[in-house]
Each structure stands twice: as C-alpha cells, then as structure tokens.
Simulated assay, not measured.
Amino acid sequence: MTSLPGSAMIAADISENAYRNAEKFLSGLDPDWARHIAHIGPCRHASKPAREPYEALVRAIAYQQLHARAGDAILARMLALFGDTAFPTARQLLDTPADILRGCGFSASKIATIHGIAQAALDGTVPLRAEALAISDHALIERLTSLRGVGRWTVEMLLIYTLERSDILPADDFGVREGYRRLKNLEQTPTKKQIGDIGLAWSPYRTVAAWYLWRLPKNPAANGTV
C-alpha cells in the first residue's frame, strides 16, 4: 500500500490470497466492475521482482513509444552486445559508445536517457532493490523522475512490476483511462485528473484495478457491459 512521503514501507502483498481479496473488493464497487471481473476471471498480474530498478528502468525506456515487437528487437540487439551476461551492468552500459547503441535501434534521446540511468545507478540515485523496498511510492517517483527522460509512468511501471506495489494507479496511461471509458460506456475518455479522482475508490487495490482496466475489450458488447 502507498505510504506517506519519506516513510518506510514493506513490499506489497501480491499473493494469490491478496488477488482474491482485491477481486472481491472491486467486484463489490458496482455491477460494471462485477461483470468485467467475472468475464476476465482471476487476476494473473505477472511481476518481475528479480530485476533491479536500474534494469527495469532501462528496459522500460527501450520500449517507450514502441510496439512490443520493436522493443523486443532493440533490447535483444543490445543484450547481444554483452555475450552471455544476463543484463549489462551500469558501468558496462555507460562505457558503451552512443554509436554502438544507435546501431541497436535506440534514438539519440533514448541513448542519453539510458546513459543517464546508468550513471544514476552508479552514484546511488537509482537505488538497489533492497533499498527501494523501504522507500515510499511518492519518494521514489520524485527521486527517479528527476532523471532525464524518465517520466512518472515509467516509475509507476517499476513500482508495479519490479517492486510489486499493490496500490499504484498509472493515471497517465491511456489504456487505463480508455479501459474505464469502456467499462462505463462513456462518450469521452477521462482525463488524468478525473481517473485519479475516480480511482481513489479503488484503493488499496489500484494496481489490480489497472490490470483489469487494461483488459477491457474494444467492443463493450463483447464484455457484456451494454
């Protein structure tokens, strides 16, 4: 759950039991949520807790504004530069010339961001996972969005998938906002502020709520909501 800025916190409970509690809570909000959750079935959110925050941020930048296949290809070419290494260290990545990374498919802007993340990992601005687990959502967002090219959405994905936080609502995410529009059969997609305000009612399970909103079909009739 989200804690106050600067306070210590424990990694969120994302056990199967916690998912079931979240499903019951969200289903009890209104008939639209109940129908959608019944249609999709149990939450199968898949986190990546073994990754360090540095790696998670670099991977997120690789996929920014790209289709998954394009991101996969770029990342694969980058990883191939380092042989059998599962993922390059911050020093290895920082020492990789920009023209080599450009050959992998990274733009100049992304190269600058990736090098900045690597440097920030070396100087401690990007914390190790063990340290990050004790830092609040708010504090991590403020700390990491100070890096060039790292926005709030990128840090929220880190919080959701790497640090397994259970109460994160990525209000900037179009898929979340559009999913809610489809859930409620609205004419217009809610704004970031609107979905943030609406989503307060989904706490302390906003991560699971986002997971379900990402799974709204384009045709509401396919979900039995109209």
Rank of each mutant, 00 (worst) to 15 (best):
residue 93 L to S: 01
residue 51 R to N: 13
residue 74 I to A: 06
residue 209 A to T: 00
residue 206 R to G: 00
residue 161 Y to F: 14
residue 120 A to V: 04
residue 19 Y to C: 09
residue 155 V to K: 01
residue 6 G to S: 07
residue 10 I to C: 08
residue 38 A to H: 06
residue 196 G to F: 08
residue 35 R to T: 14
residue 26 L to Q: 01
residue 108 A to T: 14
residue 84 D to H: 11
residue 168 I to Y: 06
residue 41 G to I: 10
residue 13 D to R: 07
residue 141 I to W: 00
residue 23 E to S: 05
residue 171 A to R: 11
residue 18 A to R: 13
residue 65 Q to A: 07
residue 84 D to F: 08
residue 73 A to Y: 08
residue 35 R to D: 09
residue 131 E to D: 15
residue 152 R to P: 04
residue 51 R to A: 10
residue 108 A to V: 11
residue 53 P to R: 04
residue 79 L to C: 06
residue 52 E to M: 15
residue 21 N to A: 07
residue 156 E to F: 09
residue 170 P to Y: 06
residue 169 L to P: 04
residue 90 A to P: 09
residue 4 L to E: 13
residue 131 E to K: 15
residue 203 S to K: 14
residue 144 L to N: 02
residue 113 T to H: 04
residue 35 R to C: 14
residue 177 R to E: 02
residue 214 W to M: 03
residue 87 F to A: 05
residue 52 E to D: 14
residue 139 A to V: 09
residue 47 S to Y: 11
residue 166 S to L: 14
residue 104 C to H: 02
residue 119 Q to L: 09
residue 131 E to R: 14
residue 2 T to Y: 13
residue 174 F to L: 13
residue 29 L to C: 12
residue 45 H to K: 07
residue 94 L to M: 12
residue 37 I to H: 01
residue 206 R to T: 02
residue 64 Q to I: 05
residue 44 R to V: 04
residue 199 G to M: 04
residue 49 P to H: 11
residue 37 I to R: 00
residue 20 R to N: 05
residue 61 I to P: 05
residue 52 E to A: 14
residue 151 G to F: 07
residue 71 G to V: 08
residue 219 N to R: 15
residue 175 G to F: 03
residue 219 N to C: 12
residue 88 P to K: 04
residue 11 A to C: 15
residue 72 D to C: 04
residue 171 A to W: 01
residue 1 M to G: 15
residue 134 A to Q: 14
residue 84 D to Q: 15
residue 26 L to C: 01
residue 170 P to N: 06
residue 173 D to A: 09
residue 19 Y to D: 10
residue 78 M to D: 02
residue 220 P to E: 11
residue 211 W to H: 03
residue 115 H to M: 05
residue 30 D to T: 11
residue 9 M to K: 14
residue 76 A to N: 09
residue 5 P to E: 01
residue 5 P to K: 03
residue 128 L to T: 12
residue 75 L to R: 04
residue 70 A to K: 11
residue 190 P to Q: 02
residue 154 T to W: 00
residue 133 L to Y: 12
residue 17 N to H: 15
residue 218 K to P: 11
residue 183 L to E: 08
residue 158 L to H: 02
